[in-house]
Amino acid sequence: MTDNDQAILAAAEMSPRIARYSRTFDYLIVVIAAFLVWSVTHIHFLLFAGDWDFFIDWKDRQYWILITPIVSIMSAAAFQAIFWTLFRLPIGATASALLFLIGVWIVRYHAWEGMAYFPLSLVVPATGLVGAMALDFILVLSRSWVITAVFGGVIYGLSFFPTNWIYLAPYFQPAEHMGEMASVADIIGYVFPRSGTPEYIRIIERGTLRTFGDSANWVSAFFSAFVCMFAYSVFWLMGVVACTPKYIPVGYRFKELYGAKIDAGAL
């Protein structure tokens, strides 16, 4: 044990043996936290915004840019609240985005391609990793969830579409289709006419990857950034409330059943 280790143990008033127990507990918590963040982020995203993430041709300038950051910042904010307020760790948002990305790639490979034979190039997932890192960065610098909601929320919403453009750009390469110039996205649209996309809310245009681009992208990104601020705030508070270490008193009868001691005077 180094002098530094000994000084830390002395400051913590811990013996080396107890420090070893404590460290083991830390390791176990890391594994539980990773499973928890991974699973809750994935099920949350899957059923609020999953469709836009499943398919490349659903990645439109209208709803994909708007909905994906709003939904993904919710779990990022809740986990930031848990990690920051309980353990002073500024990693909640990044852990949420990173573990989700790992999980989603495993499913895209094993289920989408492996079971249903979708080519991976048609089911590429999006990522909010850059925005999530910015959220953690702002939180650790400001130490304020309000500042993180205002500035981090805006950055999260605005950064989503530019940072995902990297893998979308190849779908706009020119390609020849029946003697005419089209994009790869156009050809995907010709081959897969999406009768199943939600027409009931698409009034102006039927959003697909084919129409992705132009200033409308930024309109959606700014709207998303605006909503992200509020989504962040609500879910930060939800994370704080969910982790309040409250106990409800157990009645005497059940206390006795559980094996706890009952004070004679209390009966």
């Binding site: 539980i32 499973f35 699973s39 899957l46 999980g103 499913v107 249903a116």
Partner: peptide, 21 residues
């Protein structure tokens, strides 16, 4: 450790696999 491990499989792997079906 067991509870979160088992929840992970439904919330992530088999949950989204259901979408492929």
């Amino acid at each position: 450790l067991l509870y979160t491990f088992s929840f992970l499989w439904i919330a992530s792997f088999f949950g989204e696999s259901d979408a492929t079906w």
